[in-house]
Nucleic acid binder design. Sequence first.
DNA 1: TTGTATGCGTTATCAG
DNA 2: CTGATAACGCATACAA
Lengths: 317, 317
Amino acid sequence: MVTLSDVAKRANVSKMTVSRVINHPEQVTTELREIVVAAMTALNYQPNVAAKALANNRSNMVKFLILEDIDTTEPYYMNLLFGIARGLDKAQYALQLITDRDRLTIGNADGYLITGARTSDFPWLDQLKRPLVLFGENRYGYDFIDTDNKLGTQMATQYALAKNYQSLIFIGIDVKEPFEYSREAGYINTLQQHAKLPRIYRMANRSHLSQQYITEHWHEFAPNTCFICASDRLAIGVVRAILQQGGSIPRDYGVIGHDGVFLDQVSNPQLTTVQQQVPLLGEHLARMLLSKIAQSGAQQGEVLLAPQLVTRGTTRD
Amino acid sequence: MVTLSDVAKRANVSKMTVSRVINHPEQVTTELREIVVAAMTALNYQPNVAAKALANNRSNMVKFLILEDIDTTEPYYMNLLFGIARGLDKAQYALQLITDRDRLTIGNADGYLITGARTSDFPWLDQLKRPLVLFGENRYGYDFIDTDNKLGTQMATQYALAKNYQSLIFIGIDVKEPFEYSREAGYINTLQQHAKLPRIYRMANRSHLSQQYITEHWHEFAPNTCFICASDRLAIGVVRAILQQGGSIPRDYGVIGHDGVFLDQVSNPQLTTVQQQVPLLGEHLARMLLSKIAQSGAQQGEVLLAPQLVTRGTTRD
DNA sequence: TTGTATGCGTTATCAG
DNA sequence: CTGATAACGCATACAA
């Protein structure tokens, strides 16, 4: 194993100089720095993570806690994980995946990544002694990253208006969670700007429920209607109901989903949807935590990443 | 932070004794051991992973390299990861997720978990200087863990025979990989034991291909036939074709899939399938690598985990 | 069986 | 700007 000392010898300097070239390059003259860098590459020097961690009073590990029940039929978390992994990789950080909150504080970690935290979780989150960053909106001041839910439905609503659908209806999820409020807000605000009245229906996030709902209230939905849905699941149920009733998609009825992770691709016709940039979210999430650790716990604020509206077969060309 | 010394002080021993209680308890008298253990629990002592790693010349990190293209519509890897995480967690090991093989040797790791390795990968695997364990069969002597593919199709074939399907046809994947050979072997062997002739058709692992194949050759498949498929994807295509042709499932036609991870549940009727114990596989995979590391690279051999035949709607009661 | 001294590779402190 | 020294927490070798 090549160590600092090896590099130091080859460059005819002390190991402190080598260490400085790595951590505080500005404190070293350009000449020396170049010599040292040359020596490092020549020897293919790879810093020892454990030693670095020990000296810095760190572990170079973070824990990723998944609190919600994972619906394993969706690759959402896999994509998120890949993003997180990419973000951690660059800093030679490693990950511990946890699903049991009791195991979160066992062992060492420099910080925590947490997803699926609900309001009831916040009290014990406050007990944690290491920096944490949440995945998913919250309104209690915890640092978080999320997709910009409000912007997403704004984009969807504006798009539906641009395609000349007259009546815009929101099919929401009946949970009291920030992401749902934000998605509804984006819809409502956009309608208000165009002097239209919002119509919102809420139900559990199951495609057969939205299908049933649309079927039962079919007479209320005249042609030239676009359904803005809070999830792809709901959207798929809406599509099924419309087709069943003999409605024409996208000519008379438009449907726009939300999430764009998987379901949108297998449906027929393929769903127009507000697509989250999940791997990117993961990468930013990891980076946020790393910089919070580096800044000894300093507030990182809220980060919202713009989603992308993917236009496919369920809205007009 | 509570250290060895803190525990030592409280127990009125040297820190070496504490260290021994942890790593070589048999070298310490029962009395002292109990005192020390009491002190550890009283102080909630958590060993410092970085220090331990440094002293042991380890990093307490392993890399998980995913070589194949992940079909992100299947939760297979998520389940595997959860299992791996569980296996690592107990030893306070952390994980680095890698998809780019060039990054495998960057940074420190005590060993490698590798999935999706093909024959062409083995040359460079030999270059690696750390222990590795593969996920997935290979016939070149690398340690691996996998589901028992041969046993799986044996179980499926025997079950089909027990349900009195007369004609048993294997729908395979046309790849030259050990898992496919094993699955075919389980089918062939069982048929031979019952003095029946195997009929195998192979195609790429796409449901529309198996659907097309069955449709085009429908006249060849008399009632009382069971299709043993090498994947759930293929099985679903077969189911669709049979229903389209007006065949009765499970009365006249049986279908058995393989993998049982996701697709089997969303199909209609629900698929009888050979289900892999994916999280368990992951856990064992991690443990294999950890013990290989502990035994400084000693051969661990091949581990095959028995799958479970899940009987549902596509075979007779 | 238990304790002492030493080293693992890196970084911060302080001296030059 | 650079170098010597001590310290991080733990484990091995050796001594008692």
